[in-house]
Simulated scan of single mutants.
Amino acid sequence: MLPSHGRYAYSPIIGRPDYSWPGGKRLAVYIALNLEHFAFGEGLGAELAPGGPQPDVLNFAWRDYGNRVGAWRMLEVFDALKLPVSVLVNSEIYSYCPQLMDAFRARGDEVVGHGRTNAERQGVLPEAEERALIEEATAVIARHEGKRPDGWLGPWISESRVTPDLLQEAGYRYVLDWCADDQPIWLKTRAGRILAMPYPQEINDIPAIVARKIEGDAFADMIVDAFDEMRQQSQAQPLVFGIALHAYLVGHPHRLRHLRRALTHIAQSRDAIWLTHAGAIADHALSLPEGVVV
């Protein structure tokens, strides 16, 4: 037998209990905007070009463009199209550029925990240090937002063997790290369970643009094609379609123009879909009778 994570059992997407989203909708759609801050001269970070010796000014400044310019341009698009956003936030953002979080708070957007900074991975830490990281990031968000976040995405999708356990014990209701399904599913933990919400690694600008080196037009086409296909698939099963974005990537003008096109296509179908926050999708799944969510 191969080693197993032991978090969930295999369940094919066909043949599961059927349900619908609010209003009888079959496809739930959410936008996840990652707002990240990075250490200067050390630590991890996505690269526009291969980095040189530290301090790597080119790549640090490129990433910082997202907070200074890109996210504000994206806000204009979200406002124009009346799109809700789930903001996946490094807690260091609050000390670095609090005005950005003020703007999303004014829109009533959901805030999701995303560690302290994407200059680090949580999954390499000893359990006590990982617990402290989760507690620190949670406390910062709660202090500024007036309530703690319900959901968590690890920096770099980084998990240790005990991350779901620590999140459940810290009071989190859902985690976005596991991209194994198009429906919410349960993960077992040592003290109960936590909901794994679909979070895309395909319709995600980092794997697409940074890793695969495609450009904004192709990424926008991916969004449109996946959305249209999942609308058709959702006739058979209720599904979740997420879009994962980073302001330092798609906030640049040549990519933002194509992103606007893709988001406009989705917004034009708002009457046929449930356009909402990740947390609202999780809340609906958690409200369903026992056994409906696998």
Rank of each mutant, 00 (worst) to 15 (best):
E47Y: 05
A137Y: 13
G146W: 12
P55Y: 07
V112S: 00
W62T: 05
E76F: 04
G70S: 11
E127G: 03
R73G: 06
E129H: 13
L44D: 08
G115H: 04
I31R: 11
V69M: 14
L35Q: 06
R131T: 01
R143A: 03
G66N: 08
I134K: 06
Y96V: 05
P55I: 06
P126C: 00
G51R: 14
G113L: 11
L81P: 11
E92T: 11
V85E: 05
A103R: 13
G115D: 11
Q122E: 14
H37E: 08
H114L: 10
Y96I: 08
A142H: 01
G52F: 03
E129L: 14
N34H: 13
Y30T: 09
Q99W: 14
L58T: 07
L125K: 15
W72V: 05
D56L: 13
E127P: 11
A137N: 14
A80R: 15
F104Y: 15
W72F: 01
P126M: 03
A46C: 13
S95F: 02
V77P: 13
H144V: 00
W62I: 03
P126L: 00
A28Q: 14
S95M: 07
L27T: 13
V77N: 07
N118I: 00
V57G: 04
T138P: 04
I134E: 08
V124Q: 14
A49F: 12
D102K: 05
L58I: 10
P55H: 03
M101S: 10
D64W: 10
H144T: 09
Q99I: 11
P53E: 13
F104D: 10
R107M: 06
E47Q: 14
N34E: 04
A32P: 14
M101D: 05
G45H: 03
R107N: 11
E42G: 06
H144A: 07
F104V: 07
F60G: 04
P84F: 03
G108Q: 15
H114R: 04
L35V: 05
A71N: 10
W72E: 08
A71F: 05
C97E: 07
E110N: 02
A71Q: 04
V140C: 01
D109P: 04
G45C: 12
A103M: 04
H37G: 09
A142S: 09
S86H: 14
N67E: 08
L44T: 00
G70N: 00
L48N: 01
G146E: 09
D102W: 12
G115W: 07
G52I: 10
W72I: 02
A103F: 12
E130L: 08
Q54N: 15
V124E: 15
P84N: 07
G51K: 13
A80T: 12
E36D: 06
Q99N: 13
I31N: 12
Y94T: 04
R68W: 11
L81V: 00
L27D: 14
E135K: 15
R73L: 06
V57P: 02
T117H: 01
F60W: 15
F104E: 04
Y94S: 08
L88F: 13
L133C: 06
S95V: 06
G123T: 07
A61K: 01
